[in-house]
Design a binder for these strands. Structure first.
Lengths: 344, 344
DNA sequence: GAACCGGCGTGTATCGATATAGTGAGGACG
DNA sequence: CGTCCTCACTATATCGATACACGCCGGTTC
């Protein structure tokens, strides 16, 4: 391996001058820089990041920890984050946590070990208390899975409001028997005035709120998060005494599975049942029928994540902020009543 | 930051003993180990990976470099790779190369800088010559984008054979006017006896081969790799003097776009046109119509990648291997002729 | 012409973990 | 009883880049 010292010897200067010529941290005469650059090129020198980060205490890399890459939402989110950080001059690596407490702890550990300068994490398994404790040791931004209490930098999704809008859409389109797919039992939400908990529970709160106000029937089907789970839920829905005529899925991925599962039993969307999802992943435009969905402001999410993390790395003592992004209801074919019209 | 030296001082032993107690590299008496462990716990010590890897020259991390995470195929591939490496006891980080030469060079650079012990890369932008040169400095496994010549460890997809099977299916289902979406102009393949080049070109070769043999009409539409590109291609296909009745898309993602684009113009799949894709991403099962596709043996791909990389890290001088995995034709609704039947 | 200064470089200590050589205590053995 | 060995541990050098303190030199300024 060719080291900086080798370059220095070869070029007849000190290692420090090579370092300065390369990083530009301190001025070097044009002639010397030229000489150094040529020598670097000739010997094929490359800095050793391990040595550099040991000395500097920084790596210039931020970690992105998501539950899984095998997901429409998280793979698209990761992609957007990587791009945004790269524009901000920061390299990124993506880790999967498998939505587990252990995986999330591992992501924090990797950060603490100085492998990353900061961490963006979509935390599902850790408790708020744990996150708070860990966030004191590492610059971290939490992405909107839970309702937190201003103790850590946090980008929230408009979970309750979005779910309300989605549900309201179904009601406005004339549905009388609603279902929510991916929610805990609605009875469990009973008596909770201020919605709290993980994202899906918040969405369920939004759903329940509108259901109450409008007086329609509603059932809930709890399940996993995959398309397969969605398809399974569709079967469950069809087994109920009264088949719903409007379904709100807490994610688009579930919605795809539900639509498919309904089709497997000859039930058509939107002719027989209206379906609306949440997240507005790219695929929502391309499915048949295209899927109506709640579109959180994706650009705002990543912009805020980048900004908050940069700020916290620069000043670890800064006051934590909690930012909630806006959303848009994007109506597509899956909620067009027979004879109705679609926008977009 | 609490260092190993701090732990050593606190416990009244030497740093080396702490190191040995933690790594188990050399024997330490049970009593001393106990003492060290307690002290580590009490002070909250964590090893510094930068220092460790500077000393050892290894990190225990392998890099996975894919063009983009915003892709059905690559996000699912990344997920599988991460899982497989984790089962093999290796940590992984995922990088996006944006399908660019620069991005791929960056992935190699990160590896060479000792950030990774090895690299799995789906290389699109680099030439075979460049890959060969770089592969001498880093343990690397290339994932099947190009036809390489046994100079580097390589896991290949059954591109030609898969494309042939897909095309043959369309012919068997009675199509007379075929189209391939995502291929370079078919004329460019003229006169090349042994198929070579990037994956999509290989698939085009397979397509062309079957077209020749069966004497059906065929056109090609070159385009990007996204669903939007697929939808655009659909418009182009419909503008042709004779609309094709069978379309082979070089990826499932393109196929989703094509099906959607056709639907936008009132053309139905499979009633009016049959469509078959390549990759068998999970979504193929859940779209409506579900998509017939060529399913390369995904598990074999990642297993081979893990094995080859582990072998090369252990022995950098090992003879390079080129492994081609098997495939299966999965027929679904998108190629069911009116009155025909579907399997699976 | 003495004192001072800024631009350019150098020499060396340092980051934290670990490989290697070395130390000393205790036991086995002839 | 002396030699040799093992075991458990310590001391020190090392990995490669860089922060820091300093030295040198030509040019200003009074």
């Amino acid at each position: 391996m060719v080291t900086m010292r080798d370059v220095a010897t070869e070029a007849g200067v000190s290692p420090m001058t090579v370092s300065n010529a390369l990083t530009g941290r301190r001025p070097v005469s044009a002639r010397t820089r030229q000489l150094v650059m040529e020598t670097v090129e000739r010997l094929g020198y490359q800095v050793n990041v391990a040595a550099r980060s040991l000395r500097q205490g920084r790596t210039g890399v931020v970690g992105i920890a998501v539950p899984t890459l095998d997901s429409h939402y998280y793979s698209q989110l990761s992609h957007r984050l990587v791009r945004a950080f790269s524009q901000a001059g920061l390299a990124t690596v993506v880790e999967e946590t498998h939505a587990s407490r252990e995986g999330e702890l591992a992501a924090f550990r990797d950060s603490r070990l100085n492998a990353y300068d900061g961490l963006v994490i979509a935390a599902l398994g850790l408790t708020e208390r744990e996150i708070n404790a860990l966030s004191r040791e590492v610059p971290v931004v939490v992405l909107g899975e839970q309702e937190l209490h201003q103790t850590v930098d946090h980008v929230s999704m408009p979970n309750v409001e979005g779910a309300q809008a989605a549900t309201r859409l179904l009601v406005e389109r004339g549905c009388h028997r609603l279902a929510i797919v991916g929610s805990p039992p609605l009875d469990d939400l009973e008596g909770i005035a201020i919605p709290e908990g993980p994202a899906f529970t918040l969405r369920a709160h939004g759903f329940r709120h509108v259901v109450r106000d409008s007086g329609v029937d509603a059932t809930a089907v709890h399940c996993g998060v995959t398309q397969a789970a969605g398809a399974h839920c569709a079967r469950l829905l069809l087994q109920q005494p009264e088949t719903p005529d409007g379904v709100f899925c807490v994610t688009d991925t579930l919605a795809f599975g539900v639509v498919r599962g309904l089709a497997d039993h000859g039930v058509r969307v939107p002719d027989d049942v209206l379906v609306v999802g949440f997240d507005d992943v790219e695929d929502a435009r391309y499915h048949i029928p295209s899927l109506s969905s709640i579109a959180p402001d994706h650009e705002a999410i990543v912009d805020q994540a980048v900004q908050l993390l940069a700020r916290r790395i620069a000043d670890p003592t800064a006051e934590p902020r909690d930012v909630t992004v806006g959303f848009e209801l994007v109506e597509r074919e899956s909620t067009v009543c027979p004879g109705g019209q679609v926008q977009g």
